[in-house]
């Protein structure tokens, strides 16, 4: 069983979420139809860990691309055009491309890991959250938390509160 509260205004939803956090309730999520850039600080979301994935991926991609060129050229020595077997200018181009390729792919992986997606299991969700409402959800609270959570959500000015099973 989960609790969801629907809000019309961004500030109300944020204050509800902050109230729940302050009350020590776990598994609180705040859903919104659009990203809330202004509120990110209030919600304690700083720099995302995705950036580490991007950086590491790009570096590995660059190194991997260059070593792929060198290694594959050394497997079979095929002289072409009087050029060196390990020719830097063309290999740097390949390096450039693989840097970006692996950088993008690892950013994608990073996104999935950090955002904990894909997740198709039952989780609290309200359809309005993707239209024009803000939804604060508490995932499977313990029985003594339920009352407190509902109180906080109502106190913040929720339009409605529902106790639902996971809908998504």
């Amino acid at each position: 069983m989960d609790i969801t509260g629907t809000f019309q205004y961004e500030e109300d939803a944020i204050s509800a979420a902050q109230g729940l956090h302050a009350a020590g309730i776990k598994n609180v999520s705040l859903m919104s139809p659009i990203p809330m850039h202004a509120a990110e600080k209030a919600l304690g979301l700083g720099k995302s860990n995705v950036r580490k994935f991007t950086l590491i991926g790009a570096i590995l991609g660059g190194l991997g691309g260059f070593s792929m060129c060198v290694a594959t050229a050394l497997v079979f020595i095929m002289p072409t055009g009087g050029r060196a077997i390990i020719a830097l200018p063309p290999y740097l181009l390949i390096t450039y491309e693989t840097t970006i390729l692996i950088g993008v792919l690892s950013t994608l992986v990073g996104f999935f890991l950090v955002a904990k997606l894909p997740a198709w299991k039952n989780r609290p969700y309200r359809v309005e959250a993707n239209v024009n409402r803000f939804v604060v959800a508490v995932e499977s609270p313990s029985s003594n938390e339920v009352k407190k959570a509902e109180q906080i959500i109502r106190g913040a000015g929720a339009l409605g509160i529902e106790q639902t099973g996971g809908t998504l």
Binding site: L74, I77, P79, G82, R83, A84, I85, I86, A87
Partner: peptide, 9 residues
């Protein structure tokens, strides 16, 4: 590697 770095080696 040094050898294969030379052009026209």
């Amino acid at each position: 590697i040094r050898k294969y770095r030379e052009a026209g080696y």
